[in-house]
Design a protein around this nucleic acid. Structure first.
Lengths: 205, 205
DNA sequence: GTCTATACTTCGATAGAC
DNA sequence: GTCTATCGAAGTATAGAC
C-alpha cells in the first residue's frame, strides 16, 4: 500500500512524472551509478514493477529524465539571454545570481550526472551535443550583440570564441564547486563584472 | 590458469599495479559505474579473489587509482609550468599540445570519471580538492610571472582570477570534448594564442 | 492499471582447497 | 599467495493474481 488510502489513484501521467522527479532527486543525492528500479520506486512512492510497465527499462527512464531536464534548462537560458534590448551586463549578472540559487537547488549536480552518463552512452551523448549546440547559438548571439554594443574589437576577440570561453569556464567552475572547491571563483567573477561595467560605462559616452 | 605457463609468478607489487592499470582502462572504456571485481580481474588477467585480498574492497582499490593517477598528473603539470625561465607562451603551447595527445590517450576521460566519483564520495572529494589546490598554486605562480613579464595591468586582471579562468575554461572544454562537442574550441585557442603572442612581442621592445 | 511472486543473473565478499 | 566454490544480498525483468 504505497498510496494514501483516502486519495484517488493518480493518473499514469502523474505517476510517470513522479518517477522522473524521483530520479532527479536520486541523481542529486547519490549519483546515477546507484539508481535501481526498486530504490526509484520507493523514492517515487510507487511500485517498482511500473518502471518497466511505463518506461520499459531504467535506461529509457533516464533518457526521459535527460530530455525533460534539458528542455527546462534551454527554455530558461533562452528566456534569459534572448531579449536584445536588455544590456548584456544585466543578463550576465542574472546568470551569475542563478549560480548560487542553482547550486542550492541541485541543478548543476543533476546536469553533471547526466553529462557523466553521456560519456558512456551514445544516446545521451547525442542529446547533449544538441543541447550544447542550442545553448551555443543563444550565447553566441548575446555575446555578438554585447560586443557590438560595447565596441570591442571583433578581430581580436571573435564573439564565437568569447562565447566558448564564457560557456566553458562556467562549466568548469560549476564542476569544481561540485567537489567543494571554489578558490578564486569570486575573484574571477568580480574581474569579469568590473570589465563589463567599464565597457558598459564607456559605451554610453 | 590466467598467467602464462612458462612465466614466473609476478610479484604482489606487479599484480597490484596490473589491477590499477586495468581499472584505468575500464574507467576509460566504460566508466566507473559498471566496474566490478570480476570484470576488473579479467581485464587484469588476475583472479578476482585477489582484489579483496590485496585492497579489501573495490572502493579502496579505486581510491588507490585516484591517488596514483593524480600524482602522475601533478608531477607533469609541475614540470611543465615550474621553470620561471621559460616564457609563458611556450608553456601554454605545450599545454595545448598535450590536450590532443591526452584525449587520444584517454587521460581526460579517466580524470573526469574520478571527478564524477568524487561528487558522491567524500574521500574522493577530499583528495581532489587537495589536487586542485596544488594545481592552483602551480598555475597561479606561472600566471603571476607571465603577467609581470608581459606588463599586464594587475589591478584589472588579478593573476589569481586569470589563473582560475585558465583552469576552469580548460576543465569545461575538455568535458565538452568528452561528449564529442568542440564547436569554437579552435577559435578560442587561437584567440588566446594571438593574445599571448602580441603580449610576448610587445614585452620584448 | 497496479501489485506481488518469482525466475534468473550478477554482485561483493569470504571460507577453505591447493 | 593463489584460486575455486559458495553464500547471501540485490539487481532486472516478467508472469500472473487482483
Amino acid at each position: 500500500m504505497n498510496r494514501e488510502r483516502a486519495g484517488i489513484s493518480p493518473s499514469r501521467q502523474q505517476t510517470e512524472q513522479a518517477f522522473l522527479d524521483a530520479a532527479e532527486r536520486l541523481l542529486l543525492r547519490e549519483g546515477y551509478a546507484t539508481i535501481t528500479t526498486r530504490k526509484l520506486a520507493t523514492e517515487a512512492h510507487a511500485n517498482h514493477g511500473l518502471v518497466h510497465y511505463y518506461f520499459g527499462s531504467m535506461e529509457e527512464l533516464l533518457l526521459r529524465v535527460l530530455e525533460r531536464f534539458t528542455d527546462r534548462i534551454l527554455t530558461r537560458q533562452r528566456a534569459m539571454y534572448a531579449d536584445p534590448a536588455v544590456p548584456f551586463i544585466e543578463k550576465w549578472r542574472k546568470a551569475m545570481d542563478y549560480i548560487d540559487a542553482d547550486l542550492a537547488s541541485g541543478y548543476p549536480k543533476i546536469w553533471y550526472e547526466l553529462m557523466a552518463m553521456a560519456w558512456n552512452n551514445p544516446d545521451f551523448r547525442e542529446r547533449l551535443m544538441r543541447v550544447h549546440e542550442q545553448w551555443d547559438a543563444v550565447l553566441t548571439d548575446a555575446v555578438t550583440i554585447a560586443m557590438r554594443e560595447y565596441g570591442v574589437d571583433r578581430k581580436r576577440f571573435p564573439p564565437e570564441a568569447v562565447a566558448v570561453l564564457v560557456r566553458t569556464f562556467n562549466e568548469g567552475m560549476l564542476m569544481e564547486r561540485l567537489i567543494g572547491y571554489d578558490r578564486g571563483h569570486r575573484a574571477l567573477l568580480k574581474m569579469i563584472d568590473d570589465l563589463l561595467r567599464r565597457w558598459q560605462k564607456e559605451s554610453k559616452r
